[in-house]
Write a protein that binds this DNA or RNA. Structure first.
Lengths: 252, 252
DNA sequence: AAGTGTGAATTGATTCACAGCC
DNA sequence: GGCTGTGAATCAATTCACACTT
């Protein structure tokens, strides 16, 4: 979710819905798979299956880019790969700075998926002097003090924040001040940014919690199937409740 | 996004919208922050600001859980923490298995955010015999062969897939067959699961690509501001395309 | 006076279903 | 005959605005 937005309509028939944008990388990846296997043409049905969406959605999504298919035939794989890649800005090479070289930063620096898809790690930066100079995936970790210099020299506009929560906002402020306008945030805090800067967050703990929410319902509903039902098990260790309990339902 | 869904309405006023569920962890975290700082009561405005959403949305979200606030006053922090935690299933301890102990699996195993929030890493599993026995965050990596045993013994229902793309579906099938019903997938492939199993995916490369998409528009629109404008870069009606980036499907 | 809770309005995303083209 | 592209219909999420409570 972009915390801050870019530009609203951006005019000329080119207003691609955010939900569609979020799926383009998926389509691109699936298309590359077909291309690697030498497939020349795919139908919306086939491509949709590979990407894990339904075909109506896929067709609607692609229709926002233009009419790149052939009725009765399908899509030319190479042509569509190119169009999607162009739309995503993958035809150019984006230098990315990763700030925070802890466990996660390490993993990201070593992650092949980034570098193989139009992104190049321009620098790794960490505040811990003990870490500067350390080689990670062939790149030396640099001091946080050099952040602005690095961004300027490498003309970086996309950064990854993989610092602890406590440092994230300050790092973010410096990134933005230095000219970064897109941030991928792994720190579990909502970053405040001025308008014109995009932030996307990856919140690992939240993802598990969302799964746990559904898991709980599944387990409750399978228990509810037993005759012995819905016992409200007295909650031990209540936090001190204020006055509550009144189901203040009703009204309208 | 749940690839497969659980149960639709689940009856009695308890059908919490998916978008709301996805924000509950955020609220929970923000509330914990207030609690830690000794704040007793928060308004929707304050809590919303801390969570990075607007207050109308927050109030609507909370209204799906029940009427836990006090008009004219706000929300009791401890009470609301408890209610949100209960809704999320955080009052219990969820054993989690991580499959794939590469860079990412390592990072996840060491990531404090999981263990500190109701999740316990029950086991680390990897297919590489060279890695079994290795200690990661105090836990010995186990052989993939033991997967079913582990899941059964520890009564695991939530698993994390951090394998290369090529292994993900097979691992997923085994997880599901062994009784896992919630999967957090880091591999860049859409997992096929039977209905009743939830999958959420974290797609690192896609996140960067989505940022790049918006970044490209920003850069184009700032160029468009120059007198020399909107050069329509001759769109040939035919597949005149460079085959793009060679490699694909990198691993984690 | 302050601030929640919620109907109503709006905006956005998905799905349907079929006309049009190959 | 097969399959895309897209209006229309549906469904979901967000925002508005205010009645109601303390």
């Amino acid at each position: 979710m972009s915390t801050s937005r870019v530009d609203r309509p951006l005019g000329r028939g080119r207003g691609i819905p955010e939900a569609t944008v979020a799926r383009l990388p998926l389509y691109h990846r699936s298309l590359m798979g077909f291309a690697d296997r030498g497939v020349a043409t795919v139908s919306s049905e086939e491509l949709a299956a590979a990407a894990g969406v339904n075909s109506a959605k896929l067709r609607k999504d692609l229709s926002h880019l233009g009419s790149y298919g052939t009725r009765g035939v399908g899509y030319d794989v190479d042509y569509l790969v190119y169009q999607v890649a162009r739309e995503l800005g993958l035809t150019q090479d984006w230098p990315v700075v990763i700030v925070g070289v802890g466990n996660l930063g390490h993993a990201l620096a070593n992650y092949g998926g980034f570098t193989s898809r139009g992104f190049r790690i321009a620098a790794l930066v960490d505040s811990d002097p003990a870490r500067t100079g350390e080689l990670v995936n062939g790149l030396a970790v640099q001091s946080l003090g050099r952040l602005e210099e690095i961004i300027d020299e490498a003309d970086v506009s996309i950064a990854v924040v993989a610092t602890p929560a406590s440092a994230a906002q300050e790092v973010c402020d410096r990134l933005v001040a230095a000219g970064v306008t897109s941030i991928l945030n792994f720190a579990p805090v909502p970053l405040q940014v001025p308008s014109g800067v995009d932030v996307r967050k990856v919140d690992l703990a939240s993802e598990l919690q969302i799964l746990a929410f559904h898991e709980l319902r599944k387990q409750m509903s399978s228990l509810a199937a037993l005759p012995q039902l819905a016992a409200h098990p007295a909650r031990p260790g209540h936090p001190a409740h204020p006055a509550l309990a009144p189901r203040s339902e009703a009204t309208g």
